[in-house]
Amino acid sequence: MTRDSVLLRLYRRVERALVPVALLIGWELFSRSGVLPPALLPAPSQVLVAWADWVFATDGNTQTYTGKWIHDVAASATRVFAGFAISTILGVGIGMAIGWSRTVERLFEPVLQILRPVPPVSWIPLAIIWFGIADKPAIFLVFLGSFFPVLLSTIHGVKTCDRNLLRAGAMAGGTPGKLLRHIVFPAALPSIFSGLRIAIGSAWMLTVTAEMVAVKSGVGYVLWDSYYFLRYDIVIAAMVSIGLLGFLSDLAIKLLAGRVLRWQRGSTLQAKEA
């Protein structure tokens, strides 16, 4: 690795940090300027102190939350990944069927198109009535929020599959099942992964919403409960935690997509060379 390439990498890392660092400095200065009371807009340094106690139990300033960050994150992550897994299985399965079969599309599309515009949060009263105050309503809401991005992306991926590949597969004696498994599904994977990345963001948003109303644990519950006690430093720490968890979840899907879709990267490079 040459010296220029090392400097270029270092510059790119610094460049990515410029805007976040500038925002933090501006936020710190504004919070300390006295324009707003510190209790209403805590400085980043104050938020960091509260967050450190929430995570590591440093000085007990977060009181009942001290040292419970891992427990709260684990509770939220369990709901997110449970609902996300259900939506992935059903979204990909139903999306493949709708994209492949005109009959299935005619049967299911009217109902799905009616349900799709309904905001997931509007299901909260019914979710509480059906499932009570526990994990189930949160998982149900996460499923609703992440199902349609996966479904629509899968349908799009199946419908945009190269018809010449299907004709070639059929001429080689491929059955519909084999065509779906060996041609259509791999061709739809880029669209499916795009839908999964959208869905995981929706999943985190919905689990926080559900925890504010229907659950008594998790990061969303801490956010809402600390609001009642005017602990806006904990509120912001919870918001940052949610953003960080969403970022890491999206990164995990992105890395998985990079491994699964290595063939796509190779074909793209070949197309550029040609």
Rank of each mutant, 00 (worst) to 15 (best):
T175Q: 04
V222N: 04
A252T: 14
F143P: 10
L10N: 04
A214D: 07
L256T: 15
S122N: 08
L48Y: 07
D53M: 10
G93C: 10
F247P: 12
L230E: 08
A39D: 11
E105I: 01
T62M: 05
L29H: 00
M171A: 13
A17S: 13
M171P: 00
G201E: 02
P176Y: 01
R12A: 07
S33F: 09
G132W: 00
N164H: 10
A199Q: 06
G258T: 09
R32N: 11
F140P: 06
V235W: 03
P125A: 13
L48R: 03
G266Y: 11
G132M: 04
F56Q: 03
L23Y: 02
I128A: 07
L223N: 10
F143S: 10
P20F: 03
L36M: 14
E211I: 04
S191F: 11
L245W: 12
G201D: 03
I124Y: 04
P117E: 08
R102T: 08
L179H: 00
V47N: 05
I114R: 07
S87F: 02
W54K: 07
G169R: 02
W100E: 06
V215N: 12
I192R: 00
V19G: 02
N61I: 15
R167S: 13
P176I: 05
L196R: 01
T78D: 10
F131L: 08
C161K: 00
I155Q: 09
T78P: 03
W100I: 03
H182P: 00
G93K: 01
G91D: 05
A39C: 00
D135E: 15
D250W: 05
R231P: 07
L251F: 14
G67V: 12
I234H: 04
G220M: 11
L255G: 03
T268V: 09
A168C: 05
Y228F: 14
G99N: 08
F30K: 02
L230F: 15
Y227A: 15
L230H: 13
V14E: 01
G174C: 06
L8H: 11
L23S: 08
S202Y: 08
G60L: 07
D59Q: 11
E15M: 12
A22S: 14
R12D: 00
D59W: 06
H182F: 12
G34C: 12
I253Y: 12
S101Q: 09
M212G: 15
A97V: 09
P20T: 08
G34I: 08
F148G: 09
L115W: 03
A52Q: 07
S226I: 12
F30T: 03
I129M: 15
I133N: 04
G218Q: 07
L40R: 01
L196E: 00
A82K: 02
T160M: 11
T160F: 00
S249F: 07
V19S: 04
Y232I: 13
P117H: 10
A252P: 13
G173L: 06
C161T: 15
A168E: 05
I133M: 13
I242M: 15
F143Q: 09
A57I: 06
R259V: 13
F81K: 10
L165Y: 03
R163N: 11
I98L: 11
S31C: 09
Y232V: 12
I242W: 04
V55E: 02
I236P: 06
A52K: 06
E211V: 05
V92S: 01
